[in-house]
Design a protein around this nucleic acid. Structure first.
Lengths: 335, 335
DNA sequence: GGCGTCTCTGTTAACGCTAACAAAGATTGG
DNA sequence: CCAATCTTTGTTAGCGTTAACAGAGACGCC
């Protein structure tokens, strides 16, 4: 095997031009005679020539690859984001290299970033939802285009983020508007910025309504932890409305409430976050908040590309507003 | 910006050796004096040197990157597979570049493969669950290490696959063992090999029990299509057991049955496939079949690496047996 | 003690591409 | 019509690494 394909010089020879002219055709350089261009294209097609990205990356100093660092690409949010990022990148002619890390601690992230850097990626997107990720990013070489998604708003790093606060506020307000006297919250892990933002938004909505927020119940994004919180909530007669930090938590809560015979939405209303495709088929269909992952992906990529092109590393910031999706898991409280 | 980092020669100068010696240290070549090795390592650390993968790829003809072509990395199965693949690859020092395609037609796949090839990936993993993918793969250059996952068993291409047939047979048998007189099936899209295999297994189990398989109801993996099928099943009084081709379909079915007041498992038993993390929190908890994605990933990568190392392209085949996970959605039929 | 062998290190030449410059025609303007 | 300019093409020199070979010592063996 290892029959290496034809190189640029082979194409050049066949087309009767210099390899540099082939390069110009490939890169859309303007000053090439139309006739020459056609001859070169024909030669390329005839030989099945495929440009060598490594050689190009070597001489230009950047590859057409974007590195993505993410934690758990099995979760719905990260997976959607990754897919959207990949789609968008492909349209711009970039490949996406994933570096998923088990833990979002300092060392793991640095290692993943390091791996990407030695492949000379053109830029890096870090889906860094937790505190500990921040440090790793600050000591990164300054000349590497970088965008963080759902990262720390407090750090001077380009950031694209779903507006967690607004989403949570909308969810909570939706429950208050239905007539509930207060809203309980099952949160995500508190070291995730996503969770913190959602807790914030929930709290803001309650405070704005002159209410005293009950203590949030901490979950870990999983249906299992939602189930555990749900078992507690089911036993508290005063609870009529629950906002969970994601849809899977909501599923666990729904299941627990069902087991305790507390009917949703008649006795207790529930709102989730994420709008996983299955949410419309929960029992009952779940009212939830839908983040626009495509928009997040587009914004991050655009931000990254502008850094790559301009060479300047701006500390931009962009926030994507999520939308409330009303379904059947919310109703006015019984009196 | 574009302050390019130090190169091998810089390290060499600092350590007082030739760049070739640095290369030897980096590649773990044996014939380097211990003292020299240490000096080189120190110089590497001091300069923060990072090897240039592009240059290496150029001269060796292969990068340390594995290309993955997948369709919808938002679905649970593909996402899990991708994550597992990435983990395993990282342990072997390989990065993973994703090329997701919207449609698994001939052209899209070829384009994705093409993109990977021009980056000179060391090998390609195609998660190619549909018929149309096959053609695209056959006309691929023969010298590219390739493994397909869940692809066409009929093609002479290295293949790793979840044993769909065995899984479906186990699920169906489980329902028969509970005493059901027959088992209905909500299938996935029939151009997916996964679906075909699951239909096969279900049919085999029924035939082996001397039963006449009812017509399978075609879904599209989504809860929405499961819901539609569920609405029909709910209206058929003779139905007591349903096997769905994945858990999301099962969720839709459960929801429809619930709406029609048909209790699960008392009146109708349901078994899914995939064991998504949420399945244990469906109402009721779903009995399902769990494919071992980690094992699939390990097997594929191993197969790919052995091709990369040996240079020979064997047409191997490996099948990973899934496991039945019994929960509460199955009960004996009422008499 | 000389010669082959082993261990360690250095030198040189690619790999396939783009950037920078050079040069040859074609075109323009006064 | 000749100099100035523009368009098109070719030539040369790297980019940072590995592979292949060469050379310098150290060592063992007859």
């Amino acid at each position: 095997m290892a029959v290496h394909g034809p190189a640029m010089t082979d194409v050049a020879r066949l087309a009767g031009v210099s390899h540099q002219t082939v390069s110009r055709v490939l890169n859309g350089h303007p000053n090439v005679r139309e006739q020459t261009r056609l001859r070169v294209r024909a030669a390329i097609a005839e030989l099945g020539y495929r440009p060598n990205g490594a050689a190009r990356a070597l001489v230009t100093g950047r590859s057409q690859v974007i590195g993505v660092v993410a934690q758990n690409t099995t979760l719905y949010g990260p997976a959607s984001l990754l897919a959207a990022l990949e789609q968008t990148a492909a349209e711009e002619g970039f490949a996406v290299s994933v570096g998923s890390v088990r833990n979002l601690d300092h060392r793991s992230i640095s290692a993943a970033v390091e791996r990407h850097l030695s492949h000379r990626v053109a830029g890096i997107v870090v889906i860094a939802p937790v505190e500990s990720a921040g440090e790793a990013l600050e000591r990164l070489p300054k000349d590497v285009p970088l965008v963080t998604v759902d990262g720390d708003p407090g750090r001077p790093v380009p950031l694209v983020t779903v507006d967690q606060v607004a989403g949570a506020r909308a969810a909570t307000q939706h429950l208050l508007d239905a007539g509930h006297r207060t809203v309980w919250h099952v949160s995500g892990p508190t070291d995730w910025f996503d969770s913190v933002g959602r807790i914030d938004g929930w709290r803001q909505a309650l405070l704005a309504a002159g209410l005293d927020p009950p203590p949030p119940m901490p979950g870990d994004w999983s249906a299992a932890s939602g189930y555990r919180c749900g078992q507690m909530l089911a036993r508290m007669p005063e609870v009529t409305a629950v906002f969970t930090a994601n849809d899977h938590l909501a599923l666990g809560v729904l299941r627990a409430l069902h087991e305790f015979g507390r009917r949703v939405p008649h006795e207790i209303s529930v709102v989730g976050f994420d709008d996983v495709p299955e949410a419309a088929y929960f029992i009952p269909p779940l009212t939830t908040v839908r983040p626009d992952f495509d928009a997040v992906a587009r914004a991050s990529l655009q931000m990254l590309l502008s850094q790559i092109e301009s060479g300047t590393g701006g500390a931009l910031r962009q926030t994507i507003a999520p939308a409330l999706v009303a379904r059947e898991s919310v109703a006015p409280p019984r009196r």
